[in-house]
């Protein structure tokens, strides 16, 4: 048994070495695209704020920086996630449905499970890369905010993300325009839904692929985009509903916020395992498709 386990790990290691050796060019290219994309989006967001006369930082433009860090960068991150998602889709699609590469890869001696593990490692590489970059962007934004306008730094804490609802309460009571506050609250919640949307998109993509077998790369991207748009719309509707219900039923705030905060935290923690699960389902259906 111990020898079998050792043999399996040895084969997985060999598959990973093979995978890296044959695909390191593509992996580096993807990473370069991802890093470049993030850098470009960050610069664009910064330039956008600067051109509006809100930067460099002054106490008066502190809120603008919060907007920049909190909404602009995060919104650009949303677009970046979509683009990176499409790139990942293209690469995985080409890698595992292209008859030449799949022939070469599948014909190597290794069990299907061992190959799934390597494929998951591929996807985890991209996912973790995205998360790391996201955290870097977030940390930089938070640092700038902390250094220049400490009053707003709590606003950036992910674990306090739902504190905006408390803010909503206080400003609503103070008579501030309720629509603007709800809008801001929806955007804040929506930003934290980003990983859920991204990985939900992969999940939907897998399900659609399973139900409607196809091999076309354009169809694959189309399915990804449709799934993405669908989830964005659903998320927005849900978030508007949640925030609006908070405004209408103040007595529900405390328990509802507690449940929502717990759910979002759990999803945030589970996003990578969930992504891996979705991807495992995807690879299994690719293998099944080949089996048919």
């Amino acid at each position: 048994m111990k020898q079998n386990t050792s043999l399996q790990w040895s084969r997985i290691r060999n598959l990973l070495c093979y995978d890296w050796a044959v695909d390191k060019g593509k992996i580096k290219f993807t990473l370069a695209i991802v890093v470049g994309l993030y850098a470009a989006l960050f610069i664009m967001a910064y330039w956008n704020q600067t051109s509006m006369g809100l930067l460099p930082m002054t106490p008066q433009s502190g809120e603008a920086l919060v907007t920049f860090a909190n909404v602009s960068v995060m919104n650009y991150f949303e677009y970046a996630t979509m683009i990176v998602g499409i790139l990942t889709t293209v690469i995985l699609h080409r890698k595992f449905t292209n008859p030449q590469t799949s022939l070469q890869y599948l014909a190597l001696p290794g069990s299907r499970i061992e190959k799934y593990i390597v494929m998951l490692a591929d996807f985890a590489f991209v996912v973790i890369g995205m998360q790391v970059l996201y955290l870097v962007v977030y940390a930089v934004s938070m640092l700038i905010c902390q250094l220049t306008y400490p009053e707003f730094s709590w606003w950036m804490n992910p674990w306090n993300s739902l504190n905006m609802a408390k803010k909503l309460m206080s400003v609503t009571e103070s008579g501030e325009n309720q629509f603007d506050v709800i809008h801001t609250s929806v955007m804040r919640l929506f930003i934290w839904m980003t990983p859920v949307i991204s990985f939900g998109t992969f999940g939907l993509w897998c399900v659609v692929n399973m139900l409607f077998k196809h091999n076309g790369i354009l169809k694959s991207i189309g399915v990804f985009l449709l799934a993405y748009v669908f989830l964005v719309i659903v998320s927005m509707i849900v978030m508007v509903g949640v925030v609006a219900s908070f405004a209408e039923h103040p007595e529900l705030h405390a328990p509802a916020l507690h449940v929502l905060a717990t759910v979002i935290k759990v999803i945030l923690w589970l996003q990578i395992p969930l992504a891996l699960l979705f991807q495992w389902i995807f690879y299994r259906q690719i293998a099944n498709r080949q089996a048919k």
Binding site: S10, R11, N14, C17, Y18, A21, V22, L108, P109
Partner: peptide, 9 residues
């Protein structure tokens, strides 16, 4: 290099 990564299989 291809031989090096293929041989272990």
């Amino acid at each position: 290099d291809l031989a090096r990564v293929t041989a272990p299989f």
